[in-house]
Simulated assay, not measured.
Amino acid sequence: MLTVISPAKSLDLSPVAVPATRPAWQDDAVRLSKTAKNLTLGGLKSLMGISDDLARLNRDRFRAFAAEPDAEAVRPAAFIFNGDTYQGLEAKTLEPEDLQWAQDHLRILSGLYGLLRPLDAIQPYRLEMGSRLKTRRGSTLYDYWGDQIAKALRDQAQALGTDTLINCASEEYFKAADRKSLKLRVITPQFMEVKEGRPRIVSFFAKRARGAMARFITQNRLVDAEAIKDFSAGGYAFDADLSGDDAWVFLRDYPEPSEGK
Rank of each mutant, 00 (worst) to 15 (best):
L54H: 03
A29T: 04
N38M: 11
D28K: 13
G43V: 05
R31P: 12
V74I: 09
A36Q: 07
A78W: 04
D70K: 12
A17F: 09
V18L: 09
I5Y: 06
A29E: 06
T35G: 10
R75V: 00
I5F: 12
I5P: 11
S46M: 14
D28C: 14
V30E: 10
A67C: 04
A77Q: 00
A71T: 08
F65N: 01
A67V: 04
W25Y: 13
S14M: 13
T21C: 15
F62N: 02
A66Y: 04
D27I: 13
A66D: 09
R56Y: 12
D60Q: 09
S51F: 05
V74E: 01
A55H: 03
L54C: 03
A71D: 10
I50T: 01
P7A: 06
S33M: 11
D60S: 09
L41Y: 05
A24I: 14
L2V: 06
P76M: 00
T35R: 12
I50P: 03
A55N: 02
F79V: 02
L47C: 04
D12F: 08
R22D: 15
R61K: 02
F79S: 03
K45S: 11
L13W: 07
D27N: 12
N58H: 00
D12I: 07
R22M: 14
L44C: 04
P19H: 10
L2G: 08
L32E: 05
N58E: 00
L41R: 09
R31Y: 15
L57H: 06
A71G: 08
P69W: 00
P69T: 01
D52I: 05
P19I: 02
A77I: 01
N58D: 02
A71V: 06
T21F: 14
F81Q: 04
M48I: 04
T40Q: 07
R22G: 12
K9E: 15
S33N: 08
E72W: 00
S51Q: 05
F62D: 00
A67S: 10
